[in-house]
Amino acid sequence: MTTAPPTTAPAATDTRRGRGIPHGALGAAGFAGLILLLELLPRAGVVDARFLPPFTEMAVALSDQLASPAFWDALVATLRGWIIGLAIAMAAGVSAGILIGSVPALRAATASTIEFLRPIPSVALIPLAVLLFGTDMRSTLLLVVYASFWQVLVQVLYGVTDVDPIARDTARSYRFSLWRQVRTVLWPTALPYVMTGFRLAAAVALILEITGELIIGSPGLGNAIAVAKSSGAVDTMYALVIVTGVIGVGVNLAARFTERRALRWHPSIRREVAA
């Protein structure tokens, strides 16, 4: 088992499930414990209730939010910004990745530039975005695209290198057209990497979308949190933070589902299902 890369290890240990209490129940108990803790800590006076209201108050604030149209507007604005940003980053990342990855000279010449630009924290662009676009949605979009583009690009580059040389040479000797080579040889090899990039980018894009709204003030949930904070509505603030967490979990699950769906045919997924 030591030879297996870390990514395949979970499947092996999960087979031990079924002993004792089911894990789902334990997980639910964990959440119940967290809620109980959030309720009891402020009630017992361990934590100042002005800073951490009891969970029931957060729940009331949350249901108030769910009834208000402003909340839904903010939610839609956040999700829209996230989807647009992610789509741009995916399209740009995949096409740039395939282009750079399949031309060795281009790849060698751009490697240092990519390595340099990638770790630049996207929040460094906030002042520039504000100057260019003000508190418009576009300034947040700039951050989202910048941050998630690199995640996709780097994965696609790995994917393109992974192409089996024999398959590539075979396609060449049969004189496949360029488009056909990309579609039948390159794309299936790179797809698992593309999906990894997609999953990473989806999470990063959400973080930057909400960060942008929070700091820049473009419309969305992040901005709603900033407003709740400055108006002293602490319970609403917590309610909105919980919503962002739920969206985050939702995004992760959706990304993982899309990944499995797109890679149904891939040996790594087929093996997992069979086991």
Binding site: L206, I210, L214, T244, V246, V249
Partner: peptide
């Protein structure tokens, strides 16, 4: 907790 965007 990991899914909550840290800046919030």
């Amino acid at each position: 907790f990991r899914a909550i965007p840290p800046p919030v």
